[in-house]
Simulated scan of single mutants.
Amino acid sequence: MDRFLRGLARFTDGYLKSLPLMGKARPGRPNQALRLTVAERRTVADDVVALRLVGDGPLPAWQPGCHLDLHLASGLRRQYSLCGNPSDSTSYRIAVRRVGPGSTEVHALEAGSTVTVRGPRNAFPFVAEGPVLFVAGGIGITAILPMVLEAHRRNLDWRLVYTGRSTGSMPFLDELPPGADVRIGRTSDLLRDAHPDGAVYCCGPTGMLAAVRRDFASKRLHFERFSPPPIVDGRPFALELRRSGVTLSVPADRSALDVLRDLRPTVPYSCRQGFCGTCEVGGVRICVDRPTGDRLVLEEL
């Protein structure tokens, strides 16, 4: 499933441009750089801020499930789900929980700050058909909320289970449509309302995703990860940096990116799941790609 999703993520941007998803919005070119301004900064939960970003004119269209690549002043790149209204072409909204250096840098942005973004791109597309169950954990609501609102607007047969440690930690509670199942500190029986022939869209922490994947063995399960999946079928290989004349050993349970960053901590990366392209070197996405043989050669490093 993870290998399939990595492949899906790579062609989704181009494929979706040919589809009238939900009758209108299409994502912008994934490599289109935009210089946007923070028009509003608002605290929406404990350690979570929502930023409204505007440009000089209409922004590229997007669908539920899309995210932006933020290029931060430090050189870090991070992806954040668009969680506003797709019909609003004047602004984008993202919400960010402070959990590391990238998100801490985002939290330091104020109204009037500028930021470079690329996208929107979609590795988590929503097909507006019911019945559908949405499962969101904490900040995972950012990817799920636009889907829920679209399903509600279309009068689909939908359910939402939204879990969190406390109400104070859960953003956008005030924007949920009637009928949402909000659970505090309880993550059991997440799939109680899942229709056997319906779809499930899930975004949240690793433990939640593992539980949903275990309990809902269906091709109609769609999910977005916060962190990369463990490598379970890898083989060891040699990573040759042709320009540097260095060869590194990559064990079966690590990626080329992991090993390379031990040597060069400044090597850029972001999603670690193969869809953002930040770590791509010579056509190789070193966070996920492995050679068919026993050696991977990177000519540019």
Rank of each mutant, 00 (worst) to 15 (best):
D2R: 12
C287E: 07
R153L: 04
L133Q: 05
L19G: 07
G57V: 06
S91V: 05
P177M: 12
R42T: 12
C287S: 07
A151Q: 03
V54C: 09
L5R: 10
G185S: 06
S255Y: 04
V135S: 00
R41I: 03
L51Y: 00
A128Q: 04
R235H: 06
D46C: 01
R6Y: 12
S244N: 14
C66M: 14
V284Y: 04
R225C: 09
V106S: 08
R214H: 14
R261C: 08
R52V: 15
H152D: 13
R186Y: 11
S18G: 14
A39C: 07
L221Y: 00
G84S: 11
R243H: 10
G7V: 07
L82I: 14
T37D: 01
L191S: 00
L296P: 06
L70N: 11
V132T: 00
D253P: 03
L16A: 07
P177S: 13
A143R: 00
G84I: 02
F11D: 10
G14L: 08
S113R: 03
P171S: 11
I231F: 07
K24A: 12
G274W: 00
F4K: 08
R290H: 08
L16D: 11
L76I: 05
D189L: 10
S81C: 10
C66N: 11
A210C: 02
E300T: 13
D174F: 09
D262G: 03
S218R: 06
L68K: 14
R154I: 06
D56R: 13
L156K: 04
P125W: 11
L221H: 09
P265H: 10
S103D: 07
R264L: 07
L70T: 11
F11L: 15
D294F: 02
P230C: 05
T206S: 11
S249C: 02
P236T: 06
D174S: 15
A238Y: 05
A252R: 04
M170Y: 09
A199S: 15
S103V: 13
A238M: 13
H152C: 02
D174V: 12
G185T: 06
G207K: 15
E299L: 13
A256L: 02
G234S: 06
L260Y: 14
G204A: 07
N31L: 12
G23M: 11
G65I: 13
E110N: 15
L156C: 04
H67W: 15
F126R: 09
C203N: 03
T114F: 09
Y15T: 14
P30Y: 04
G112H: 05
M208F: 02
A33M: 12
H152R: 13
